[in-house]
Design a protein around this nucleic acid. Structure first.
Lengths: 199, 199
DNA sequence: GTCTATATTCCGATAGAC
DNA sequence: GTCTATCGGAATATAGAC
């Protein structure tokens, strides 16, 4: 109920942002109509352009925000000088699965929207850079000098993220929704074990 | 040169299908304009509707074809009664990586187009069924009766497919294109080793 | 700031000549 | 079967009153 009050009290600008995040994330840029967003925000269509000028500008705001969320969970972990490789694996798995359980379609959104956008449209470069120069990569190189550190990173992220990307494929009924969630909770404990075996 | 001759000799219908596959796969249904397809096929826009009635019908054809390709590689492998678990892991890895190297954006296309489509629009059900009732799942259950077989399957597919899904994120310049390909070739040998450790 | 009404552009689809 | 021309609808964006 206090929750509802908060929602009602949102400024128009915030209502539009919230609605845009929801609709864009679910349907993607091209399939989203500004009318969908206006309806979801419960505001007049003209207000969307009054506040954000264009669909593209509004999308850009949402996309940058989503990218920050997608990369933000692991960024502090991978650049931590004071934790071991093993601790990093555990942290990344736990944080990431929690994030994706709370934001089911975040990863499919990020990955599918990036494919057309020109390289520079969002500033992806600095996210990428953070990975390449991370402490995590250095630690992997020290531990296994003979194998490309990206292999382990791809394995870790693949095991974490792929289930969410493919969920639409493998679960049909909503009844299986619960099964999916408990499976992911199991994976929080299992994935670090599997990855450690690769080191 | 004989290749070029073949292209020139394609029927109009085939030219449209080829162009539709290319454009839909790259941009997705919503972002694709029928004009893009016509231009890519080097034919008149009206011909597209003459042969296929509508954008949606044409897309349906492409989508079913892409789904068959995406699932077709592993379907015979997972239902083979005469191969061991280990042999199946090796086959799946090899066939899948080869497929994805030849069709870089196949997986991101399939996964992102499915999210909005109603469950029944393409017949996904039988692909799903083939997985659930596969020999592979049975073998996993026998080998590790205490753990959900889907874990291992998600790990295998995640390690194989995720690199292709995230490629746009991690490689910026086209120069890194070659690095990516050789990394994937390495993974053909490494992934089966990692997965076997989980058994 | 918010609304109604409308301008404008874009896109899927078709009519009709050849 | 293939083309040109165009229709009709949908979607983004704006004008102008309140």
């Amino acid at each position: 109920m206090s929750k509802k009050k908060i929602v009602v009290d949102l400024s128009t600008e915030e209502k539009i942002i919230d609605a845009a995040r929801k609709v864009f994330t679910k349907k993607g840029y091209a399939a989203t109509r500004t009318r969908d967003i206006a309806e979801e925000a419960d505001i007049n269509l003209a207000l969307l352009n009054y506040y954000f000028r264009s669909k593209e500008k509004l999308f850009h705001i949402i996309m940058v925000e989503r990218l920050d969320k997608f990369f933000g969970v692991i960024q502090p972990v991978i650049s931590d000088e004071n934790t071991s490789l093993e601790q990093k694996m555990e942290k990344i798995t736990e944080k990431y699965i929690d994030l994706l359980l709370a934001n089911h379609d975040l990863s499919i959104f990020v990955l599918s929207e990036i494919r057309n956008a020109p390289d520079t449209f969002f500033n992806l470069a600095h996210h990428r850079q953070a990975f390449i120069e991370s402490v995590l990569i250095k630690q992997l190189q020290e531990r296994k000098p003979d194998t490309n550190p990206h292999h382990i990173l791809l394995n870790l992220l693949g095991m974490i993220i792929f289930p969410f990307l493919s969920a639409a494929l493998f679960k049909s009924s909503t009844h299986e929704q619960q099964d999916f969630e408990s499976l992911m909770l199991e994976r929080k404990k299992l994935i670090p074990k599997w990855v450690k075996m690769m080191l």
